[in-house]
Design a protein around this nucleic acid. Structure first.
Lengths: 121, 121
DNA sequence: AGCTTTCATAAGTCTAGACTTATCTAAGTG
DNA sequence: CACTTAGATAAGTCTAGACTTATGAAAGCT
């Protein structure tokens, strides 16, 4: 075989905007710390800020990113807003990673076992 | 109960440098595209660059980040360097997410079921 | 009604990092 | 050998985004 196509100009396959947001959200250490606090136990913004060496607005901004990524949800409780982890959002990311893992492992064993198409240029 | 401790000054728990590198590596869309090409089939640097709208040095730099994060490995093949996905690196990230998922789901059902310690201030 | 608390948002700063072009080395090819 | 090809690295630019302080809007408290 070895189709005579040009180098396939562009894969175009993307992880989708949601996965992109979630990876971006968890890539920052401070934001991960915010998430760790919130997921351990539901917390208000100021309660999170009290445990981290950053300002309250910084925490609000991190929680906004986590909320947009569907990794946390907010529930108004009087003047406070209680943030908690949203399992549904994390489930999406987990599915994505699992799929990736299956693909990678599959390609790996297939390369190790007999058939090796090797590199493509 | 309600322990009389101060707000627990800092969690200090971090995902570790390796997970941090891997999340950071996969958080960039272009780098994810590089990874997608390489994981689909082992490729040289120029083969990757030919399929993406970025320069060859950009691809080299992305592959460096992916390599440092143990997500890809390089094998010299003459003047070329063949890059392929490293399952071991991805396994680390997958384990981390799975652990996170277990924790989050656990906290969620525990909050839903009876015992609700609610927010902590 | 004021005064306080809680939080989001606005606006500005400053650094990380995603790109570029310009090399330099190493390995193949005539 | 000269010449090309492959890729890494250096150096510089420019934007995203992680912070800050300042302020405004709700909600509770006395």
């Amino acid at each position: 075989m070895t189709s005579p196509e040009p180098p396939t100009p562009f894969p175009g396959r993307d992880a989708g905007p949601k996965i992109d947001q979630q990876l971006h959200a968890l890539a920052d250490p401070t934001r991960r710390a915010v998430y760790d606090i919130v997921r351990t136990g539901p917390s208000s913004v100021s309660a999170v800020a009290a445990r981290l060496p950053v300002s309250q607005p910084a925490v609000s901004q991190h929680l906004r990113v986590l909320s947009d990524a569907r990794l946390v949800t907010a529930t108004p409780r009087g003047a406070r807003r209680i943030y908690r982890a949203d399992p549904a959002g994390l489930a999406d990311l987990r599915r994505w990673i699992d799929q990736l893992w299956d693909d990678v492992l599959d390609a790996y064993v297939q390369a190790a076992t007999g058939a090796e198409p090797e590199e493509e240029r």
